[in-house]
Every structure is written in C-alpha cells, then in structure tokens.
C-alpha cells in the first residue's frame, strides 16, 4: 500500500504524532475557513509543499495518491455545473451554470485543500502512531482493539486475496464476464471462511501465550516534544489566520 509505505519511510516518521495531527488539523480548519478560492488553493499548496519538501514524500507519490479522489471530485462537481428543473408534466429543463462558476470553484478548492491536509497526515504518520495518539486521547479501548487487529490482519488478507486472484487468473478464471463473476464469488467465499479460520488461529495463539484480552504494544514514549509541537502549532495558527484573513 503506497500511502502506508511512505508513512513509514518519510523524513518526519519519528516526529510526534501530536505535532503532525495538530498541523493537519490547522490545515483542515484553514480549508474550511478560506472563503476565496485562491486562499483555499494556497492552503492546499502549502500543505502539499510541507508534505513534499518537509517530509520528503516524492511529488509523484503525492500525485498518484491524489489522482483518484480528484477524479471523484470532478464527477461530484458536475452536478453543480448544471441545474435540472421539472417544468410541467415530465419535461425537464437543463440550465448551464445556474450560479456561475463561483460556487463550483469554492467547492473544488475547499475539497482540494482538505484533501491536501488529509494527505499530509496520511503520508507522514503510520496508522499505529495514529492509534497510539487516539489512545492518549482516551478513545474507548474496544474501538482501538478493533483498529489494531484490523491493521494487523489487513495485509495478511490482502495477500491471501491476491494469491487467490493470481491463481484464478492463471487458470483463465477472469477470461469471460461469466467466469469473472464466478471466480469472484469463489474468492470472496473462500476469504470469508478464512475470517473465522484466521481469527480462531489467532485466538489460540494468544491463549497459548496467556493472552487475557487486551493486546498491549510498546509505544513511543518520552517527554512531550515541546519544540515540535510549538512549531506545528505556530504553523497551524499561521495557516488558519491566513485563511480567515481572506474570507
């Protein structure tokens, strides 16, 4: 998984998740606070530059991750570009750009700015760091357990699914539309049965090691990195101030 790989290998991997989350939160607030499309676009560019220049995530990676959501954004904005209205019996009137380009640009740039803030957090902070942060924020242990287990198993199951898919494809399982459907059904059924198999195996493994429920992991500890946090906070405040200064 591309995002996960860079979350572990970027330059700010060791920076405290609190600091990174604070800066990302600043980006989110600025994205929503910026009224003028140009201001929102600036927020997006700043967040992207910090991710690329600061955390040293390659630009190509950033673009590859961003391209799918940007495609969704284009489709979503289509519905704002034209307006449908029912006139009389069953007839529809289509109007191009009912309110002009302004709301379309506003929405587009806001989404891009928020996406840029999300990518900053996602590309610099491994998921387990985020879980650790949520633990310090007193999120219920049941939810955190789900997250940890989900994260640990996700790659195993992805691997299993890919192996099955390769095996099926090698046997021309995806050669025809009918075959594709059949193969997918078999794959999913197999994977579903594995959910029970694997969880039972994990349960036994935990029990044989005196597992008593909660799984505990060593977390990065030590004093709060005040310098990082102060830096992130001032960056966030600057962004938010800029955004609200350009309503």
């Amino acid at each position: 998984m591309l995002v996960d790989r860079y979350a572990y290998s970027n330059r700010w991997r060791a920076a405290s998740p609190e600091a990174k989350a604070t800066f990302a939160a600043g980006g989110f607030i600025a994205a929503f606070g910026a009224g003028r499309p140009s201001a929102a676009l600036t927020v997006a560019v700043v967040m992207a530059l910090v991710t690329i220049g600061g955390a040293r995530v390659p630009l190509t990676v950033w673009l590859r991750v961003a391209v799918a959501p940007l495609g969704f954004l284009l489709v979503g904005m289509l519905s704002l570009v034209f307006s449908v209205d029912a006139v009389g019996d069953g007839a529809l009137s289509l109007r191009w750009l009912p309110d002009g380009w302004e709301p379309v640009f506003r929405l587009g740039t806001r989404s891009i700015a928020a996406l840029s803030a999300l990518l900053f957090l996602a590309l610099t902070t491994p998921l387990l760091d985020i879980v650790a942060l949520l633990r310090r924020l007193r999120v219920p242990a049941t939810l955190l357990d789900l997250m940890v287990l989900c994260y640990r198993t996700l790659f195993v199951l992805t691997d299993a699914a890919q192996a099955m898919r390769t095996a099926q494809a090698a046997r021309l399982g995806y050669a025809t539309a009918r075959g594709t459907f059949n193969s997918l059904g078999l794959l999913l059924a197999n994977l579903t049965v594995q959910v029970w198999e694997r969880s039972r195996a994990m349960q036994r493994a935990a029990q044989s090691r005196n597992g008593d429920g909660a799984w505990r992991f060593l977390e990065h500890d030590g004093a709060m990195p005040h310098r990082e946090l102060a830096l992130a906070l001032s960056g966030a405040v600057l962004l938010v101030a800029y955004a609200f200064g350009n309503p």
Binding site: D145, L149, T153, L187, V195, S199, Q203
Partner: peptide, 24 residues
C-alpha cells in the same frame, strides 16, 4: 464471548480488503 474480539477485528480487515477488490 472472548473469541469474538479477534473475530470482529479480522472482520473489519475483511471489509477493508473487500473494498479493494474490483467488482465488474
């Protein structure tokens, strides 16, 4: 049912993997 803790976690991973599969 203590065994359901792991089951639900694996089930969450399963739904995540589902969303990565392309459906024609």
């Amino acid at each position: 049912h203590p065994e359901q803790r792991i089951l639900l976690g694996v089930a969450a991973a399963f739904s995540f993997v589902l969303s990565a599969l392309k459906l024609p």
